[in-house]
Design a protein around this nucleic acid. Structure first.
Lengths: 245, 245
DNA sequence: CACGGTAAAAGTCAGAATGACTATAAGTGA
DNA sequence: TCACTTATAGTCATTCTGACTTTTACCGTG
C-alpha cells in the first residue's frame, strides 16, 4: 500500500483560501465581502468556489495557499492563517482533502485585484450556492472571524498602516454586527495596548481631527500558528525545537 | 499533472492523534500524560512518535484518526477534535502532510490501553526527542489544551460520568499548573452552569462526603468543529447546508 | 467673525465579575 | 467524644463593564 499505486485511489490534497475584506454596498454601508472564482471544469463546472489549487509536492501548505490566491485573484494578504482541513469522503466525487486558510485584507489593498466574469466579490451574507462544501467552509470562517476578533488583534488585518479609532471601531461593528460605544471602545483599545498613537492627526475632516494610530508590535498576544511557536513569547519553553539553545 | 503520476511525487496524507490523560507520578501527584509509540520502520526507526496511520481513501479524517489510535494504543476517546494540519516540505524525507487530532480521556478509561515495549505513556513535560516534528505538535496541543480549558468545558474529557468538584478542580489545577481557590472555583462552575448535581454523594471519604456532579448537556458552548456546525445552536443561521428547512 | 453642527476625547457612575479570605457544616478514624 | 479534614457558604475590596454626560476642537456657513 505504498509505492506505485495509481494516484486515483489515494486521497488528493488541495489548498483553498477564504479571504475577507470590507467593502461598501450600494448604499455606502461597509460590509464583509470575499472573492470567489467560477469553476471552469468538472465537477461543479460553472459554480462559484473558493480560490485554491492542488498542492504541489515541493510547496509548503501556506505558501501554496498564498500563491494560489495570488494567481487566481491577484490578492496578496500580509497574514494567512490555517482554518481547518476538510476531508469528508463524500465532499467531492474524487477523494479530495482541502486544507483551508483564511486571511483578511484592507479595502485599499484590494485595488490590484483581478475582477472578471470568473472572479468576483460577494458580500458574506449573499454568497450563492457554491461548489463542494464551500458554503460550510465560509460559515465556519465567519464564525472564526467573529469569535477571534474579540480576543485578538485580527481586526487590524482590515486596515492600512495607520488608522483612526473610529475606523478600527467600524471594523468591529461590521464584523460583530452591532454598534459599539465610542468611549468604551477607546478605553478598551487603550488598555489592551494593541495600538499606539503616531502623533499625527487625520486632517480634512469636517470636525475635530482624530488621532492616527498604528499597530503596536511590541507584544503579540494572538494565538500563534504552531509553526511560529518557536518565536512566540507566549510559550515559555521553546525547548529543543529548532534554533540554538 | 493529474492522472497517472507516480504516488511518490504527490504529497501523502497521514493522520495522527495527541491524546492526553491524567495519571499519578511516582509521588502520587497527578500529571498530564500521553501515549507514544515506537517507530518500527524508517524514517526515524526506533524513535518515539505519535500514534497515527496513512489516510485510506475511503475513510473520513476523524474516523481515520480514531481507528489508528484504537489500533495502536487500544484507546477510544469520546471526543476527538482536529488540531492542525502539518505540511512543511522538510518535516519528513518523503512529502507527508499530517492532519493531527487531539483528544482527552479519563484515567479510568485508560484501563484497557495497550502498553508494551513499543507503546508507552509519557508525562507531558518529560517527552523525549521524537520522530519528525512531533515535539512541536505536542507543544502546540498543550498550548491548545491550556488555553481552551479556560473558556470551554474540555476539562470534563478527563473525568468519568460523575465526579466531585474537587476532582474537576484538580483537572484545572494540573492543566493550568497552579492552585485554585475551592470556593471561587465552586462559584465559577455553578454560575457557568456546565455541570449539575446528581443528588448522590461520594461515600467512603475520611470527611464530609462531597456532592457528585454530572455533565449538564442542556447547552454546549464549546466552539464546534465545522462539521458539527449544522447541529450547533451557537450558529444562528444554518441556512442551506444539509438538513431540512 | 460669531454660530451651529459634528465627532473626538475625557470623565462619571452603578452593577457585575473576580480574587483573597473567613466561618461553618458534616463526615472519618482514633 | 475529640481531632482532623474537606465541603460548602459567606464577606469584602478591587477591577471590569456598559450606559451615559461633558468638554474640546475643527468645519462650513452666513
Amino acid at each position: 500500500m505504498n509505492a506505485g499505486v495509481s494516484s486515483a485511489r489515494t486521497p488528493v490534497l488541495a489548498v483553498s483560501t477564504v479571504i475577507f475584506t470590507l467593502r461598501p454596498d450600494a448604499s455606502g454601508e461597509m460590509r464583509l465581502a470575499l472573492p470567489l472564482v467560477r469553476r471552469i471544469r468538472a465537477p461543479h463546472q460553472g459554480k462559484w468556489a473558493l480560490p485554491g489549487a492542488p498542492l504541489k509536492s515541493n510547496e509548503d501548505l501556506q505558501a501554496a495557499a498564498g500563491s494560489a490566491l495570488l494567481a487566481t485573484t491577484g490578492l496578496e494578504p500580509r497574514y494567512l492563517e490555517q482554518l481547518y482541513a476538510f476531508g469528508q469522503v463524500d465532499r467531492s466525487p474524487d477523494r479530495v482533502v482541502s486544507i483551508v486558510y483564511w486571511a483578511l485584507i484592507g479595502s485599499d489593498e484590494t485595488a490590484g485585484a483581478i475582477e472578471s466574469e470568473n472572479v468576483q466579490w460577494f458580500f458574506a451574507d449573499e454568497v450563492p450556492e457554491l461548489a463542494f462544501d464551500h458554503n460550510l467552509i465560509i460559515e465556519y470562517a465567519l464564525w472564526r472571524l467573529r469569535s477571534k476578533i474579540e480576543y485578538s488583534r485580527v481586526a487590524l488585518g482590515f486596515l492600512g498602516d495607520t488608522f483612526t479609532l473610529a475606523q478600527l471601531r467600524e471594523v468591529y461593528e461590521v464584523v460583530l454586527g452591532k454598534r459599539l460605544d465610542p468611549g468604551n471602545f477607546r478605553r478598551m483599545v487603550e488598555s489592551a495596548n494593541i495600538v499606539e498613537p503616531t502623533g499625527e492627526r487625520l486632517e480634512g475632516t469636517r470636525h475635530r481631527p482624530p488621532q492616527l494610530y498604528r499597530y503596536n508590535a511590541s507584544q503579540d498576544l494572538t494565538d500563534p500558528d504552531p509553526l511560529t511557536l518557536r518565536t512566540t513569547s507566549t510559550r515559555p519553553n521553546a525547548r529543543d525545537l529548532g534554533a540554538a539553545s
